[in-house]
């Protein structure tokens, strides 16, 4: 049976530290847009931590929600792509193929989660930051759309190794950069087709919900909010 990659985020554990954002940028060669563009309101993060204030001062409560590509099973970004650059793979990933992307930006307009980012410029790094680029991940040039891949380079590396050793994949063996760096272990990644996996268990939790569930996008990221209002 093919794998079906999914993620779960336990919001009761997330303390909004932002380690996932940093790890993601380092792993995936995500260039910063620079001060000038940031001042114009541009940003480029494959994962972001959203903040929600609840209640009235002084009785306020802060909630965090890490948001990355939801890898929808019924992805709105896919049918709008004229070149099939955005397409679905057998293991359920919502793939973005840079070679095919011609930069129409239809997918980013269709995405309700605002997790697709267009490269308006060629990426650049201030020296010596170019030395820390990850050789396993493409540098996206100007004119293509990019987004969270669930660290497909890590998925590939582990599945190739598993095939070489002729064994079954262990739960938790694949860790995208955000999951690996999450000190609070709020993020869990794994195979949704494996009923024994941690991510399967969490995604079937009664606490679980999907982002903008009523749109029918069938996201593969499950959020587990705090269940009590203390």
């Amino acid at each position: 049976m093919p794998h079906r990659w999914g993620m779960a985020a336990d919001l009761d554990r997330c303390n909004g530290c932002g380690a996932c954002v940093v790890a993601c940028a380092a792993e995936n060669n995500i260039s910063t847009v620079g001060a000038e563009q940031a001042a114009l309101g541009r940003a480029k993060h494959w994962i972001r931590v959203e903040r929600y204030w609840e209640g009235e001062f002084p009785d306020v409560r802060l909630k965090f929600r890490p948001v990355m590509c939801q890898q929808c099973d019924n992805a709105p970004c896919e049918p709008v792509c004229p070149t099939y650059a955005s397409h679905h793979t057998d293991d359920g990933l919502n793939a973005q193929v840079y070679n095919r992307c011609i930069g129409t930006r239809y997918c980013a307009n269709a995405c309700p989660y605002n997790v697709r980012f267009f490269d308006f410029f060629n990426p650049s790094w201030e020296k010596p930051l170019q030395l820390q680029l990850n050789p396993d991940v493409s540098l996206r040039e100007v004119g293509v759309m990019e987004k969270c891949t669930f660290c497909v380079q890590r998925i590939k590396a582990v599945t190739v190794q598993v095939a070489a050793e002729d064994r079954e994949l262990k739960d938790g063996e694949i860790t995208p950069a955000c999951v690996q760096s999450c000190a609070a272990k709020a993020l869990v990644f794994g195979d949704l087709n494996d009923p024994e996996s941690e991510v399967s268990r969490l995604s079937h939790s009664p606490r679980g919900s999907k982002l903008l569930e009523d749109l029918g996008t069938l996201p593969k990221v499950t959020y587990l909010p705090r269940d009590t209002e203390a």
Binding site: D90, L93, K156
Partner: peptide
């Protein structure tokens, strides 16, 4: 073997 784009291009 798989000919999905993501097999080689990522």
């Amino acid at each position: 073997a798989s000919v999905d784009c993501l097999t080689c291009h990522f």
